[in-house]
Computed example of a mutant assay.
Amino acid sequence: MESRPVLRLAAVATLVGAAIDILAPFVIYPRLAEPWPHLVYVIIDVLLLFGILAVRSVSGRSAGPLALVGFGLALLGLMLVRTSSAAIFGEASYMIASSVWSIGMVVWSVDLLRARGRFRIAAGLWIAALVIGLAGLVLKDHGPIAHVAKMAFILGFVAAAVDLLKALGEPQ
C-alpha cells in the first residue's frame, strides 16, 4: 500500500469518514429510519479502516512487536463493533467491542510514540480517548464525557490523515 496515490486516497477516505462520524448525529441520522443508520456506521468504519491500514503501512518500518499486537487488537475491535448488534457478549457487546478497538489503538499508539516518528498527535489523541472514556466509566457518566472521548478518538484519525498527507508532500 506504499504507493503515493493509494496513501493519499486512504488519507482522504479517513478524513471523509471522520467528517461523516462527526456530522451524522446532527445531519444524517435524524433523517434515517432503521436499519439505514447501520449502513452509515459501516461506511464510516470502512473509511476509518483505510486510515488504519495506511498508518500501518507508513509506520511499519519503525514498528515493533507491540505495534503488531495493537494493530491486530484494533482490527479485531473494529470487527467486533460492526457485529455488536448480534449481542455476542450480551447487552454490553458494543461497549466491549469499542473498548477492544480503543485498547488496540492505545497499544499501537505506545509503539508509535516510542518510534518518535509521525503520528504522535494521533497517538496522543487515541490514548486520551481511552483515558477520558475510563474516567467517564468511573464517574458513571455516559453522556458528555463519552462524547468527548469519542471526539478525541475521531480527531486522532483526523491527525493521522493529516500526517499521511504531510508525509506524501515530502520528497522520497
Results as ranks from 00 to 15, higher is better:
1 M>N: 01
2 E>H: 13
3 S>C: 09
3 S>H: 13
3 S>F: 01
4 R>V: 13
5 P>Y: 09
6 V>K: 04
6 V>W: 15
14 T>R: 07
15 L>V: 02
18 A>M: 04
19 A>N: 07
22 I>L: 14
23 L>K: 11
29 Y>G: 01
30 P>F: 04
31 R>M: 12
32 L>V: 05
33 A>R: 14
33 A>V: 14
34 E>A: 15
35 P>A: 09
35 P>Q: 00
37 P>H: 06
38 H>E: 00
38 H>Q: 14
38 H>W: 08
38 H>I: 06
40 V>Q: 00
41 Y>G: 02
43 I>D: 11
44 I>N: 07
46 V>T: 11
46 V>M: 07
47 L>I: 06
47 L>Q: 02
48 L>R: 03
49 L>E: 01
49 L>Y: 09
50 F>M: 05
53 L>Y: 03
55 V>Q: 08
56 R>M: 09
56 R>D: 12
57 S>D: 11
57 S>G: 12
61 R>H: 11
62 S>Y: 13
65 P>G: 15
66 L>Y: 02
68 L>T: 15
68 L>G: 08
69 V>F: 11
73 L>S: 04
75 L>C: 04
75 L>P: 02
76 L>F: 10
77 G>I: 02
78 L>C: 00
78 L>S: 05
78 L>T: 13
81 V>W: 01
85 S>D: 02
89 F>Y: 01
89 F>V: 06
94 Y>N: 09
95 M>I: 09
95 M>Q: 14
95 M>C: 06
95 M>P: 07
96 I>P: 06
98 S>R: 01
99 S>P: 03
101 W>M: 15
104 G>H: 09
104 G>C: 11
105 M>F: 15
106 V>G: 02
109 S>C: 11
110 V>A: 13
112 L>K: 06
112 L>Y: 08
113 L>T: 06
115 A>G: 09
115 A>P: 00
116 R>M: 00
118 R>F: 15
120 R>A: 13
120 R>K: 12
121 I>G: 14
122 A>Y: 09
123 A>R: 03
124 G>T: 13
125 L>G: 07
126 W>C: 08
129 A>T: 07
129 A>L: 02
130 L>C: 10
130 L>M: 12
131 V>E: 11
132 I>M: 08
132 I>T: 08
133 G>E: 00
136 G>K: 03
136 G>Q: 02
137 L>E: 05
141 D>K: 11
141 D>E: 14
142 H>D: 00
144 P>L: 14
145 I>T: 11
145 I>C: 00
146 A>G: 01
147 H>I: 01
149 A>L: 09
151 M>H: 03
154 I>M: 03
156 G>R: 14
157 F>L: 07
157 F>Q: 05
158 V>I: 15
159 A>M: 10
160 A>N: 12
162 V>C: 12
164 L>Y: 00
166 K>H: 11
166 K>G: 10
167 A>Q: 06
172 Q>N: 03
